[in-house]
Measured scan of single mutants.
Amino acid sequence: LVRYRTISKIPQITLNFVDLKGDPFLASPTSDREIIAPKIKERTHNVTEKVTQVLSLGADVLPEYKLQAPRIHRWTILHYSPFKAVWDWLILLLVIYTAVFTPYSAAFLLKETEEGPPATECGYACQPLAVVDLIVDIMFIVDILINFRTTYVNANEEVVSHPGRIAVHYFKGWFLIDMVAAIPFDLLIFGSGSEELIGLLKTARLLRLVRVARKLDRYSEYGAAVLFLLMCTFALIAHWLACIWYAIGNMEQPHMDSRIGWLHNLGDQIGKPYNSSGLGGPSIKDKYVTALYFTFSSLTSVGFGNVSPNTNSEKIFSICVMLIGSLMYASIFGNVSAIIQRLYSGTARYHTQMLRVREFIRFHQIPNPLRQRLEEYFQHAWSYTNGIDMNAVLKGFPECLQADICLHLNRSLLQHCKPFRGATKGCLRALAMKFKTTHAPPGDTLVHAGDLLTALYFISRGSIEILRGDVVVAILGKNDIFGEPLNLYARPGKSNGDVRALTYCDLHKIHR
């Protein structure tokens, strides 16, 4: 019993810090008490220290592992850092350059016999395009090294910054494609005289377009951006097909006994025919423009016929181009109408809503002055909100995010209106959640004399007048207030005048 009563005193000691020596009952000389009392004092002292730490809000209350900052290894790049964003855009520009100039170089340097010394005699450094290609190869190699040090988000939505895990993730992902696209074939085969082989191998750079397509997928929600990307894709495919079309004609031209190829026909049409040795002929500019003209006309199913396939190889390629053109029509131009419709969806919704308003007016036989006010209010409210119901949009977000959005939407009023000066951010967040926005066209009466005042109004834009009878008592403008002081009276009061809008007004109100 003594032991039980001794232990039962522990909660009292913990909360009230009572010393055991003052209790005459606990001072009985028993061996059990002498053993338990020192333990009680020690526990009391420890609990006292913990309570003191909690009340003082000291940093040592938290466990040590929670006080440590997340460790980022040296030379690790955050995937959302500004440097990584700028670097990704730079790589994107280099990939676009590669997609345009690599097929052009591979096709127009394929057994090209233009006048001038061969590239091997001039030297590697004197070729501007080769120098640019070398810079692109170096940048792609540097990009691989950067990807080995860039964080990523795993399946659990955690940012991984450990170098080993980053390397394994990159090896399992895009490393092989990036490595093949970054191989400097110019340096590996330079001086061997195989410019045709170098041009063909350099087309491996186009593998990076797969990554670019995935990154550009984030802009699919913007109709104008999608339309622009589709047109660029169409032009890029036409450019690639033009390079292939020229390569076919250029390879067949020296081996044909009869002059029936499209390059021969082009030379005869523009007065620059090929001679018996295969030299001469149109310039590279004429060849490229004509090839691009043929691919565009074939892809769009126009086909004027002034550039036509004559050999079997050219006919087979033309059939493939027609098939590609039909697929592009289905996948690209078939979506253009939907994209344009999405661009004008706001206008369509406006006309639909206006039609419903006019049908309501016609069905209920609203008189002319009231009908005009109804239409003007709808037009003004639509121009202010673009038909978007803010309350319906915010309803799907958590309250903390709703408060931040409301604070942002009402920031101008909260910053410049005098009653809100000096208020804490928590108070402003709470008030912003209570605001209701209303609009009024010129001549609209917001409050009639004798109406119950259940709200306090803040003028965000425009001006109003307060009338008693036919006498203008006051004219209020931006950041002015009218209405009933909230919670100042037990019952809502009545208006002693009319409140009429002089201009288009936007008002925020808080109800009782």
Rank of each mutant, 00 (worst) to 15 (best):
N335M: 03
S345F: 03
V307S: 01
K272A: 01
A99N: 01
E114S: 07
I260M: 10
I177Q: 01
I135M: 14
V447H: 01
D186I: 09
L327S: 02
T352K: 12
V132P: 01
W89T: 03
I77V: 07
Y329C: 14
L92H: 03
D257V: 05
T445V: 11
H264C: 03
R74P: 07
A130K: 15
L401G: 02
D286Q: 01
I96H: 01
S105V: 05
L207R: 14
L201D: 01
N265C: 03
I332G: 07
R218G: 05
A182H: 01
L176E: 01
H169R: 05
F360V: 01
H73M: 04
T445F: 13
F296K: 01
L266Q: 01
L94W: 04
A119P: 07
I166E: 01
G303Y: 01
D217G: 05
H439Q: 15
H351A: 05
F234R: 01
H264A: 14
A182C: 13
G267H: 03
L413T: 09
A291T: 01
L78Q: 08
Y246A: 01
E115A: 13
K202N: 02
L230H: 14
I248E: 01
I248R: 01
A182I: 06
H73F: 07
L355W: 09
Y246W: 01
P398R: 02
M256A: 14
P419W: 04
L78H: 04
V168Y: 06
G173R: 11
A107K: 01
M390K: 06
D186N: 12
F83M: 06
S283C: 01
G325E: 01
L188T: 04
K111Y: 09
S313D: 05
R71D: 07
N312Y: 01
I91T: 06
E114D: 12
K436V: 09
G346Y: 06
A330N: 01
E359K: 04
N410M: 06
L343P: 03
I189N: 13
I237M: 13
R259Q: 13
L227F: 13
L187E: 11
P367I: 01
F171R: 01
F420N: 01
P254H: 03
V447L: 12
Y104G: 01
E359P: 03
Q341V: 07
M251P: 01
I146Q: 01
G422P: 04
S258G: 14
G281L: 01
P103I: 01
Y65P: 05
H439P: 01
A106Y: 11
V447P: 02
V100Y: 01
E252T: 03
E376P: 01
T295Y: 01
V307P: 01
L394V: 04
G305E: 01
A69E: 12
I77T: 03
L401E: 01
L327W: 04
T290M: 01
A130Y: 04
S105D: 02
L197R: 04
V357N: 03
S81G: 12
K66C: 03
Q127K: 01
A381R: 15
W240Q: 01
L241W: 01
Y170G: 01
R165G: 05
L209N: 01
R211F: 03
W89Y: 03
W87N: 01
G334A: 08
I324C: 08
V132E: 01
S276L: 04
L109F: 08
C122I: 01
N275Q: 03
S308M: 01
L374F: 01
F363S: 03
K425Y: 09
A430H: 15
D88K: 01
